[in-house]
Design a protein around this nucleic acid. Sequence first.
DNA 1: AAAACCTGTAACAGAGTGTATCAGCGCACC
DNA 2: GGTGCGCTGATACACTCTGTTACAGGTTTT
Lengths: 242, 242
Amino acid sequence: MADPSPHILIVDDHRDIRESLARYLTKNGFRTTVAESASQARQVLKAASINLVVLDIMMPGEDGLSLCRHLVETNQAPVILLTAMAEDTDRVVGLEIGADDYVTKPFNPRELLARIRAVLRRVSNVPKSRDPIDTEQLAFEGWVLDVNRRELTAPDGVMVPLSTGEYQLLVAFLKRPKMVLSRDQLLDLTSGRTPAIFDRSIDNQVSRLRRKIETDAKNPTLIKTVWGGGYTFTAEVTEPDG
Amino acid sequence: MADPSPHILIVDDHRDIRESLARYLTKNGFRTTVAESASQARQVLKAASINLVVLDIMMPGEDGLSLCRHLVETNQAPVILLTAMAEDTDRVVGLEIGADDYVTKPFNPRELLARIRAVLRRVSNVPKSRDPIDTEQLAFEGWVLDVNRRELTAPDGVMVPLSTGEYQLLVAFLKRPKMVLSRDQLLDLTSGRTPAIFDRSIDNQVSRLRRKIETDAKNPTLIKTVWGGGYTFTAEVTEPDG
DNA sequence: AAAACCTGTAACAGAGTGTATCAGCGCACC
DNA sequence: GGTGCGCTGATACACTCTGTTACAGGTTTT
């Protein structure tokens, strides 16, 4: 499969903007998908592999900034924000949150196109400089996590492959060592799912991850349970390469 | 709650940047304090122990560079400079003065986060806070409490796992050795609950903790009952690591 | 000495947690 | 386009944790 065209997700509650923008981008060689709300966008992001999100800040329901924050934190895709007004506040907040660029409405579609290309060029050129978690490796207690290969090397040299879910869970822990993370937080960080009432999936993933990284699963030392609170990753996290 | 995270001081005259940055860093596990001017920053530096300063160069009143020079000369804390424009001059001057790194606005907060971590790693003199509970371990009468792992090692080398409640209770005692703590105080310190009238939960937790750490539960030597007053932790608490 | 109060802890119940098991789903591989 | 396999969420059940209650002491007050 040789370099398919980038897939852009357009999130805007205005039908006009969504569709004309989609048409314009498609005509310029991108694949596009549209969503009219943040929740719909989350659906799409789960189902399809998205290379970039064009996101309206002002939307009914969940705010664009909130979705943006989620995308950045989970490192799912670069984001270009659409702001209704040229408000410096929005711009600053957006960039602080981690959006890659922003465009003020009404915008020239050619300008947006240029910025999309610029962001895609930037992230493909420097895909590893975005966050320490994206860089080479992480280590804790003698373990080494190869972020690219998604596998662990134990202190005794044994290699442990991780499933996608286990990897995401471990990364969520490594990003926030020594913090107590509730099941809802972890669910959001790993899959972006909305927590159901009787959702024990995080418990299960923790159990599976423990089985792989704890020497004694009955007395876990790395992932501690905080009764009534969630879980904590207790080890010191370092970057052996820098 | 143990909080061993580095303490970052953010100095910027723009409220937006100050606060969103503080929020972002806090969410990523740092303690933060903000200051809107160099003079305010000097106040903070006198009062609190700061591990790193994020400092805007362009500010009304005393210049950021001037404060930076002062910090470097007195060796108080590493500095990361925020420069409004990608001006090479500023960069050179800043680094010559002795700043540890610099970031140009508008900046990606994740980049700043990465640089903060890099600088902290480099100086690696992240001093332990003065609060003994923030350190890795505590010891009393031959016992060693591993704060991160939330477990005890008895003088004879036997490991004793603690439940969350027992751990919190023990920490509450260790933080205030030789003080008489009422049940209400302990309840607040451990769970933050409002004391009910016939609340015997602390009695029970004390009983359970005694069963684990006292050699003779009938004649407790570590946790003494103060009749009509509460409980006291009597042992000397030390920090084996320093 | 009797009454009132305080404390220790066993016993219990309800909520929280670990994990075996299973079914559905996606995906690679014929 | 089947087919098999691994992954993941749901479910169930056993087990743990913790607040409540009850009761047997002990201590103080009257």
